[in-house]
Amino acid sequence: MSFFSGEYFYIVFTVVLLGALIMGLLEKPLKWYNIITSALFVVLVLKGNISSLIYFGAFLSIELFFVKTYEAIRKKGRVLWRYRVFVFLTILPLILCKLCEINTLKEMGWFQFIGISYLTFRVVQIIIEMYDGVIESISVSNFIAFLIFFPTFSCGPIDRSRRFDTDLTKVYKRNEYLENFGIGLQKFIFGLLYKFVLADLAYKAMLELMAPTVLQEIGYAYTYGIYMFFDFAGYSLMAVGTGYMLGIKVPDNFNKPFISKDMKDFWARWHISLSEWFRDFIFTRFIIASRKKKRFKTRLQTASVGFIINMTVMGIWHGLGLNYIVYGLYHGVLLALTEIYQKKSKFYKKNKKKKWYGVLSWAVTMNLVMFGFLIFSGHLF
């Protein structure tokens, strides 16, 4: 059994949604219903691999311990080195998981369970916002609910704990819940169409373009990019829609990325929850720290280096394969060049609002994006 796949999943899924609908109509709180049903799904999905289930249980226990311990320590004051230690400790299981992707370390198999990357980001966000003083404390039940919420468990979108807690503890009026349920059902149906119809068509077209000629390589890049969008956007829509039906307004993850006019616009539309997480917790913090320490002569240099670091880390987050690292570095360089061009080019400033320039900028952006997908696919390595 896997999330949003297979007859067994959808039988249990339908029963769970019917239960949520009844509780919503009766204006009952859904917090504990979500915790119990999410725990059920996680066990059903992971039980096929007992070691994965054990590692997930260990991960949840360890991360809860770190969060509650840091919560107690943070009340004694805002100490930078302690904060850094706890950020590292929360990321350590993910580091061990990624290291086990290396051939010589594969047999160790530490923390190999689906969703660990997304779950780690959620925990790190809590630690960072505790350090900032935005979060003073978090309840054990809310923390567990945040991590195991089954629609977003394996592939996101990456929600924020404060936003999630607000929805989790809210008791909806009947009309408001029915409105959310209707929105969620619509999103879910579109997600099904994206993932199981359009993504499948794109995948079949992609398989026809595997031969190594230049034109077929270009065709492969485009069909792979289209497949990636419909597959992942479809999954995200199903997760978001399910969240709405369970009373949690999970943030959308895609916003028409293939109409993007430049690379910054693309990353504001593609995998939004991930790009916003990196923007808020890596890029912005690097910029602020660099300006305070005067690491670079100009703001443009600071931003350019920030983009490269930010996106390279994002590439490594996907995996330690050369294709992922190069993919991240590629997009970092593109974002840096976009920033320099838009800040320095008189040609850009003169023509950026003209229609012909918008069309040209879109065409260039799409070709750069599709080449990036070709790198990501590993087809070049």
Rank of each mutant, 00 (worst) to 15 (best):
E107A: 13
S154I: 09
Y194R: 13
F190V: 12
G57V: 05
K68Q: 14
I135N: 06
M108F: 15
M210E: 12
I183M: 09
I127Y: 01
K294Q: 14
F181C: 10
D265L: 03
G57N: 06
F307W: 15
I22L: 13
N180P: 00
L99C: 11
I226T: 11
W267D: 06
A20D: 06
L26Y: 10
Y10C: 08
G133W: 01
S361L: 00
F266C: 07
I148M: 06
Y324C: 15
Y222N: 03
I288A: 14
V15C: 10
I127D: 04
N255V: 00
W362N: 14
V197D: 02
E208T: 10
F283C: 11
I50A: 12
R299A: 07
L322F: 13
D265H: 05
K256N: 13
S275I: 05
Y227P: 01
V43Q: 02
L89Y: 00
Y327I: 01
Y203H: 11
M1F: 06
G332S: 07
L17K: 08
F143M: 12
F296Y: 15
L30V: 04
P251N: 04
L17S: 09
F13E: 10
F164H: 06
W32N: 15
L92P: 11
A233D: 01
G372V: 05
I316Y: 05
G48M: 05
I189K: 09
F283W: 11
K98R: 15
Y33P: 11
